[in-house]
């Protein structure tokens, strides 16, 4: 009896997981169908997969937006890491006055609604001719990810035993040398997950992107939103474009899984 209940619960788990995944799976499948197959009801399960939609979408220029997304995501993450990781190190391992207050102030900037700052930012970038530029988005996404990086990395640095750092200093290494040669190596898995998670956030960001970019600097979320308005009737092509937009970040997300709980709770909870 117990075995049957347990098997039933496992089956239920599978079914719910598949239901949750279904819309994404459907997007991936529909991208390989023809337009008429895409809107068949009931849905056609057997069809000849074709890469035609991907080819059409690529020729229509999704590549440029893809490149924008990649560049903005990488550049903003690098800036955020360069600024955030040293700050996290200082806040975790060194005695800093008002440490808690600084940490809370930092996280409060992450949760400040974009709605509360978008108007001046728009006017500012307009005045310095940076509207519709990748630089504007890079600067803002770096700012958006610094708090995440500080909080997450702080929690990884906290796990480093202080004796190890102490030992490097006895060997005559300076504080910064110790940081690069020992500490950074120890937190490398955490550092990688932190970087990947900030990439996920940058890749998917939409409010800044849609307010500050139009054609040159538009990233994939903006492109997809305009695709929906203009060609929302072409489901197969839209699915192909959507697949291209979400696949990279889904893969990144899968790689961050192990540290995801810690990352998403800003290090408050260890998963």
């Amino acid at each position: 009896m117990k075995k049957i209940t347990s098997g039933g619960l496992t089956l239920l788990t599978y079914v719910i997981a598949i239901l949750f995944f279904f819309p994404i799976l459907w997007i991936f499948i529909t991208g390989f169908k023809t337009e008429s197959e895409a809107i068949n009801i009931p849905p056609s399960l057997f069809f000849k997969p074709s890469l035609e939609n991907f080819q059409i979408v690529w020729e229509a220029g999704i590549g440029g937006f893809f490149a924008n997304s990649v560049f903005v995501t990488l550049a903003s993450t690098v800036i955020a890491l360069l600024l955030g990781v040293p700050a996290a190190y200082a806040l975790a391992l060194l005695k800093v006055k008002h440490k808690d207050d600084i940490l809370f102030w930092i996280i409060s900037t992450r949760f400040l609604p974009i709605a509360g700052i978008i108007i001046p930012l728009y006017l500012l970038f307009k005045n310095v001719n940076l509207l519709d530029s990748l630089l504007a988005l890079i600067l803002l996404y770096a700012g958006m990810n610094i708090p995440l990086i500080i909080w997450m990395m702080r929690s990884f640095f906290n796990d480093v035993s202080f004796e190890i750092i102490e030992a490097t200093q006895v060997d005559g290494a300076s504080g910064l040398q110790a940081f690069f040669q020992v500490v950074l190596l120890l937190v490398r898995p955490g550092l990688v997950s932190t970087a990947l998670l900030s990439m996920v956030f940058a890749w998917n960001e939409f409010f800044f992107a849609v307010s500050l970019s139009y054609t040159n600097a538009a990233t994939l979320p903006v492109y997809m939103a305009s695709y929906m308005t203009q060609e929302g009737l072409f489901w197969a092509k839209m699915s192909a474009a959507a697949s291209i937009s979400i696949l990279p970040v889904i893969i990144l997300g899968w790689f961050t899984q192990r540290q995801l709980v810690r990352g998403l709770t800003m290090g408050a909870v260890k998963g």
Binding site: I16, P23, M224, A225, M238, A242, I246
Partner: peptide
């Protein structure tokens, strides 16, 4: 892994999937 996937999908694409599918 497959259960957490929706969390990584960009909001605009999630919206598109639901709006159409």
């Amino acid at each position: 892994t497959i259960f957490i996937t929706p969390f990584f999908v960009m909001p605009t694409v999630s919206a598109i999937v639901w709006k159409t599918l």
